[in-house]
């Protein structure tokens, strides 16, 4: 399973949960790939030079690499904004299962939240909408704001959108109806968990891992 990771600090805060998921999936025969996108983590490049297309290219590269190095079929888990990268990958590569964890239906919503983080940090907006401590190129912010779930023509058998509450239920239902036309199964699911991507202490969300594993192994929730 290939993971499209969250962005910025959300990635750091999600790592423990992702590792826990990967160990669990290994127990049922899945290899998990977790890339550091260009300009993030241990990968080369500067974050402030990155554009959305660079990260789309990263995911395409990872999918090709997986096709030659790992056992098929390929499933993809997109976490938070990684879900929008994953959905795009699913338009160009046949994917067995696409699972999205807590992905904003609209990229501009995520940017509004990062702007709020700036306000909560400094008491004022710092200009731009980069997450505090990270510097996005203004063009990347524009790219992110333009991302919308549902605009992608998926080539995916099974799709599962998971959220932690019903805040996005109406938006997710619209997306589900669009994607149901091209996928044999497209489901939405609310699994009550803490927002692991926003909490500094590691959070293990066993129900989230369980539902993901069930979906991947063919037991549709």
């Amino acid at each position: 399973m290939l993971i499209a990771p969250p962005l910025a600090e959300e990635m750091n805060r999600s790592r423990t949960l992702i590792a826990s998921l990967a160990r669990d999936l290994a127990g049922v025969g899945f290899e998990t790939l977790l890339p550091d996108l260009t300009g993030t983590g241990d990968s080369s490049g500067l974050l402030e030079n990155q554009r959305w297309q660079h990260w789309l290219d990263d995911m395409s590269f990872m999918a090709s690499w997986a096709a030659t190095h790992c056992s098929l079929p390929l499933s993809v888990l997109g976490i938070r904004m990684g879900g929008l990268l994953a959905a795009n990958l699913a338009t160009e590569t046949p994917i067995d299962s696409l699972i999205l964890w807590h992905t904003p239906a609209d990229g501009s919503t995520w940017l509004e939240h990062t702007k709020r983080q700036q306000l909560a940090t400094k008491g004022r907006a710092l200009g731009g909408k980069s997450p505090p401590g990270y510097r996005f190129h203004p063009a990347l912010e524009t790219d992110i704001a333009a991302q919308k779930l549902g605009s992608q023509k998926l080539a995916t058998e099974k799709v599962l959108l998971i959220d932690r509450d019903t805040a996005q239920s109406a938006a997710y239902e619209e997306v589900r109806q669009v994607w149901q036309d091209t996928s044999s199964v497209c489901q939405t699911l609310v699994v009550s968990t803490p927002p692991y991507w926003a909490l500094e202490k590691p959070v293990i969300c066993n129900p989230l891992i369980t539902e993901t594993k069930l979906f991947l192994t063919g037991n549709v929730p």
Binding site: R116, Q118, A120, L199
Partner: peptide, 23 residues
């Protein structure tokens, strides 16, 4: 911290049906 505050604010908006403005 600042990331958790944003999630709490989102929770307030959803549970109480209120809108919290940036300021």
């Amino acid at each position: 911290d600042s990331m958790a505050v944003v999630e709490v604010v989102a929770g307030l908006e959803q549970q109480f049906g209120i809108t919290v403005y940036d300021d």
